[in-house]
Simulated assay, not measured.
Amino acid sequence: MKIDAHQHFWHFDPEKYSWISDEHIRRDFLPADLKPMLKNVNFEGTILVQAHQSEEETEFLLNLSAENNFIKAVIGWVDLNSEEIEASLARFSENKLFKGVRNTVYDEKGEFMTDPAFQSGVSKLANFGLIYEILVFPYQLTGAIALAEKFPDQKFVLNHLAKPDFSKAPSEQWKQDIQQLAANKNVFCKISGLLSEAGKDWNSSDFSPFLDVVVKSFGTERLMFGSDWPVSLSGGSYNESVKIVEDYFSAYSEEDLKKVMGGTACEFYNIS
């Protein structure tokens, strides 16, 4: 099954989604907008990911998943610092499509993943079989490494390769941090957000040095494609997001390509 492991829907609100600066995507994006593009590239499903830190949005995403069978899993948000965290996780986990949680990095400061209250919340996820999705900037990878090492039985997945600067060669620090994070076998990585970070001025070859690092670090068995649509529209079309990754892995075996383009996501998110 071909799976887009990272996409978003929203009813645009300039206050809630203040991090969205591109005027072209400061509007509503809903299932009817994405469905024909998925069909065009033979994708059978998606992983729908939160874009605002509220339980209200999590409920909105779960409602969309009930109405659209191509949504195979939902990554929502709950307040991991809350004393009521277990009650929130129990409530959302009643929905079998609720597979995990994420924090939007724009709403967090510094090494938030090393905060004791936050880590206490993360410690509750495994009890519900839930994933934590790591969204960080490169300078926050140290915190991600510490989190992964502290909870070796917790499933983690890095989003967007930690948002490096694709206009330059990969920094030595980023490469070292990616390798150290990947040394934790409980951590997977999404090849996502390439066009979201690159903007309009890019060539496919710009991404290759970064993909070389994550393939060497994680192996194809812990990598999964994600478009980051509609944020990716800031840099190019949906088809271009797919083509960049498929072209890169054309030098690999068909089995490796199938893993990256859906097989790993199906296993990681327990999609039948």
Results as ranks from 00 to 15, higher is better:
residue 237 S to Y: 00
residue 163 K to V: 03
residue 256 D to W: 00
residue 158 L to I: 01
residue 75 I to R: 08
residue 186 N to S: 10
residue 224 M to A: 08
residue 254 E to Y: 02
residue 116 P to I: 03
residue 23 E to D: 12
residue 137 F to T: 05
residue 208 S to N: 13
residue 78 V to F: 08
residue 257 L to N: 01
residue 51 A to Q: 04
residue 171 S to C: 07
residue 34 L to C: 05
residue 259 K to V: 00
residue 4 D to G: 10
residue 241 S to V: 01
residue 200 K to Q: 13
residue 45 G to F: 09
residue 262 G to T: 05
residue 234 S to C: 10
residue 269 Y to M: 08
residue 206 D to H: 15
residue 170 P to N: 11
residue 86 E to L: 04
residue 151 F to C: 11
residue 83 E to R: 12
residue 184 N to M: 06
residue 55 E to R: 12
residue 19 W to V: 00
residue 244 I to Y: 08
residue 179 Q to H: 06
residue 68 N to M: 08
residue 47 I to A: 03
residue 229 W to G: 10
residue 246 E to G: 01
residue 250 S to H: 14
residue 185 K to M: 02
residue 111 E to A: 11
residue 57 E to F: 07
residue 80 L to F: 04
residue 57 E to A: 10
residue 44 E to R: 07
residue 122 V to G: 08
residue 220 T to L: 09
residue 253 S to M: 12
residue 147 L to H: 04
residue 174 W to I: 01
residue 100 G to R: 13
residue 65 S to A: 15
residue 110 G to P: 11
residue 246 E to M: 05
residue 83 E to W: 02
residue 138 P to F: 03
residue 188 F to N: 06
residue 158 L to T: 09
residue 87 A to D: 11
residue 83 E to F: 06
residue 106 Y to K: 12
residue 121 G to A: 08
residue 93 S to L: 00
residue 147 L to T: 02
residue 83 E to T: 08
residue 157 V to N: 13
residue 86 E to Y: 03
residue 133 E to W: 02
residue 155 K to C: 06
residue 152 P to W: 01
residue 23 E to K: 15
residue 204 S to K: 14
residue 84 E to M: 07
residue 23 E to H: 09
residue 174 W to T: 05
residue 38 L to S: 02
residue 72 K to T: 01
residue 6 H to L: 09
residue 130 L to R: 10
residue 2 K to P: 15
residue 60 F to R: 08
residue 255 E to G: 02
residue 185 K to I: 00
residue 2 K to N: 14
residue 176 Q to N: 14
residue 249 F to Y: 13
residue 179 Q to T: 04
residue 142 T to P: 09
residue 150 K to H: 02
residue 49 V to N: 09
residue 199 G to P: 13
residue 79 D to M: 00
residue 50 Q to Y: 03
residue 128 F to N: 12
residue 137 F to D: 12
residue 12 F to S: 11
residue 233 L to C: 06
residue 152 P to S: 06
residue 45 G to M: 05
residue 148 A to Q: 05
residue 84 E to I: 00
residue 109 K to D: 15
residue 133 E to I: 05
residue 11 H to E: 13
residue 184 N to Y: 05
residue 136 V to F: 03
residue 171 S to Y: 07
residue 168 K to H: 01
residue 167 S to L: 00
residue 239 N to M: 00
residue 185 K to L: 02
